[in-house]
Design a protein around this nucleic acid. Structure first.
Lengths: 217, 217
DNA sequence: AGAACTCTATACTGGCGAGTATAGTGAGCG
DNA sequence: CGCTCACTATACTCGCCAGTATAGAGTTCT
């Protein structure tokens, strides 16, 4: 729910903590504060990992204490869940945007790949990929699985459509979707914001590779 | 060090716990017991995650108590490290086997991909991919990074060689290696031993995809 | 037999960290 | 002014779990 509304820009909320320092704390700030908590958590998780990050750590970074966090979020698990879905929903948005659009499916797939790369390089990229069902209660885990499955199905559908309209070669849609998702998800492991390449440039190279393959034409 | 010696066969050590029940506990069993501890840990980590697995859990599965584990391993961290390197070394072996072999580099790369897929689907696959430096001390983390880097460099070298001998199309070796490794590593997330496809079959499909690409030829 | 060594169990400690009880503080409102 | 509500801090509790002190059991060697 808070997903797409969570601020994506690093610089914009980098000093989110100022929100609390500002004396004129208006009631409408609540939602923004909540988002700041989630964003801070996402970054902490990415840097130190979920289990190596205490709520005191997160609170500390916001110059606040633990109970304050519990005022915006039910528990640590929910914090992880929010990070999770914030990222996944960006990808799903990309899939829905081009659902049923015109043009060869391969080109639509390429658009999704770019959006995917952008999401993975965002602050929520790490959580999206690395955080495991293992750390979520069955309920939460189920919701995350559903979102992931939605993405997987979306990719497979695009591949199948491409095989029908002739823009994609005959190949196993399931394995192809897995390979594609794997390559993209893995970005979260090696990408750092100071990296030479932007998400778009990475996406372009991946598209080139998956499009044409390794063997010379 | 124990890496390649850790038993790879699931069935073979499935009832490793019998080792302790057997009355004729010979001193030479020590190394095998140690391997059983590591293998059991690897499986537990894969199922529940590193932080959600206590040493008591692992001991319990072996019908043994915690101090026994400390007799074979210094601490929990080392247990993780052993799982880590056991898997990584399988991949490195594959790379070294074909180092400087004859034939087009693309074909050598395909061999490595198969070996890679086999390693990832092994019991150590999860640890190899999922376990993070974050959970290791700087020393251990450094060793793991070195191994991973060795694999990355090996892949890149193969790609460059292929571009020289003409068996691989011109493309960014770094991004290609990342995409390849990502697709392969991701297997650890979705593969289950009861899966319809074997490691070799998965590898074959991946090779087909990366070789020929999505666009019809 | 009994010394020395290897392996294992029982029963602890010590710390970390999630979550909470309680008590403010200050803004808005009548 | 004094009531209420939203928010925040201090100062706890409580459980879990990595790691250990200690003691005992079995084996081997002399």
């Amino acid at each position: 729910m808070a997903g797409k509304r969570v601020n994506r820009s690093a610089a914009q909320l980098a000093e989110a903590r100022a929100l609390w320092r500002a004396a004129e704390s208006r009631p409408r700030d609540r939602e923004r504060k909540r988002e700041a908590v989630i964003l801070t958590a996402a970054r902490a998780f990415r840097e130190r990992g979920y289990h190596n990050t205490s709520l005191d750590d997160i609170a500390g970074e916001l110059k606040v204490t633990k109970p304050t966090i519990y005022h915006y979020v039910q528990n640590k698990e929910q914090l992880l869940f929010e990070c999770f879905s914030a990222g996944l929903k960006q990808i799903i948005e990309g899939l829905e945007e081009i659902r049923g659009a015109d043009g060869p499916a391969r080109e639509r797939l390429e658009y999704v790949i770019t959006r995917y790369a952008e999401a993975i390089t965002s602050d929520f990229g790490w959580c999206m990929v690395q955080a495991e069902n293992q750390d979520l209660s069955p309920t939460m885990s189920g919701k995350v699985q559903a979102l992931k499955s939605q993405i997987d199905q979306g990719l497979r559908r695009l591949i199948k459509e491409g095989q029908l309209d002739g823009s994609i070669r005959k190949c196993d849609p399931k394995m192809t979707a897995f390979a594609l998702a794997g390559a993209l998800n893995w970005i979260a492991y090696w990408y750092r914001a100071d990296e030479a390449l932007s998400a778009q440039e990475i996406a372009r190279r991946f598209i080139d590779l998956f499009d044409l393959g390794l063997r010379p034409r």
